[in-house]
C-alpha cells in the first residue's frame, strides 16, 4: 500500500533518519518507516527507549529532516520543505504537546495558550483570545494570572494541550503526554486526545502508557528504528464507538 494514496491526512513513506554518534559513526535512528495518520484517529507510537519514537514524531512535525523517504500532508511534501516553510507548515497544521510540557513559565495560563497567536499577529485577535478562554474552561483550568510554574503537573499538561489546540490544527503530535501524570490526570488527557480525534483531528502520541495505547485506533510499534509490528488497530471490535 502506498500511504500517499490517501486523499487526506498525514503519511510517511520509507522514512529514514540517521545520525552520527560520538565516535563519528553513522547509525540509523529510523529506517523504512511507512505509516499513515488519518484524521479522526488516535495513533500510538510505542517501543522501548531509544527505538526512535521521538525521532519519528520530530520528523512528522518537521522539526527534524529525514535522511530518506517522504512525509506528506495533503498535497504538501513536508520533508522537502525548507526550514522556514516547515516552521510555517507546523505552525498552521500541528499542535505540539511535549513530554515535559515546555510551557513558558514567564507567562500566565492565558498568555501561554495564546502564544501561537502572536506568531502571526501584532495582538492576539479577540476571536483567538475567546477560543483560548473556552479551551481553558473546557479543559477544567482556571484563567489565573499566575505563572504556569505554580500549576500542578496535571494542570500544566492541560495548558500545553490548550496551547496546542488554539490554532485548531489538523494534527496533534504528543510526546509522552501522560508520562508524568497520575492516573486520574492521565485518564483525563487520554480522554481529551480521544475527543480530539472525534473532532476529526489526526492524533499521534508517543507513549509508554497502556491506558493511552488502549484508547488508540492504531499502534505503531518501533524497535531499533523499524516498525516491529504492522500498523494496525489492535483493538478493532473491542472499542465502543470505534469509527475506523
Amino acid at each position: 500500500m502506498n500511504p500517499h494514496d490517501a486523499e487526506a491526512g498525514l503519511s510517511v513513506f520509507q522514512l529514514g533518519a540517521s545520525f552520527c554518534d560520538v565516535t563519528g559513526d553513522r547509525f540509523d535512528a529510523l529506517s523504512g518507516i511507512t505509516a499513515q495518520f488519518k484524521p479522526g484517529r488516535v495513533t500510538a507510537i510505542v517501543g522501548p527507549s531509544g527505538s526512535g519514537k521521538t525521532t519519528l514524531l520530530h520528523c512528522i512535525a518537521g522539526i527534524l529532516v529525514p535522511s530518506s523517504g517522504e512525509i506528506r500532508h495533503g498535497g504538501v511534501i513536508v520533508s522537502s520543505l525548507g526550514e522556514s516553510a516547515r516552521d510555517t507548515w507546523r505552525r498552521h497544521n500541528c499542535g505540539m504537546v511535549f513530554q515535559d510540557f515546555r510551557l513558558i513559565d514567564e507567562l500566565t495560563v492565558l498568555e501561554n495558550v495564546t502564544t501561537p497567536a502572536l506568531f502571526g499577529h501584532y495582538r492576539v485577535p479577540s476571536i483567538l483570545r475567546e477560543r483560548a478562554r473556552t479551551l481553558i474552561r473546557d479543559l477544567g483550568l482556571l484563567e489565573r494570572s499566575v505563572s504556569t510554574s505554580r500549576l500542578s503537573r496535571g494542570e500544566r499538561q492541560r495548558v500545553a494541550l490548550a496551547r496546542a489546540l488554539l490554532m485548531d490544527p489538523a494534527i496533534i503530535l504528543a510526546d509522552e503526554p501522560t508520562a508524568s501524570l497520575d492516573r486520574a490526570n492521565a485518564a483525563s488527557v487520554a480522554k481529551t486526545l480521544e475527543g480530539l480525534a472525534g473532532q476529526g483531528k489526526a492524533v499521534v502520541c508517543v507513549t509508554h502508557d497502556d491506558l493511552l495505547v488502549s484508547r488508540a485506533h492504531e499502534v505503531i510499534s518501533l524497535k531499533a528504528g523499524r516498525i516491529g509490528t504492522p500498523a494496525v488497530d489492535p483493538f478493532v471490535g473491542l472499542r465502543a464507538g470505534d469509527h475506523a
Binding site: A61, S84, D87, T88, R90, R102, I104, P116, F119
Partner: peptide, 16 residues
C-alpha cells in the same frame, strides 16, 4: 534558551 527552543518547536517564525 529553553523558551526560545519551545517557541521554535511551536512553529514560531525565525524572525520572531
Amino acid at each position: 534558551v529553553p523558551q526560545l527552543i519551545t517557541l521554535r518547536a511551536l512553529g514560531a517564525p525565525r524572525l520572531f
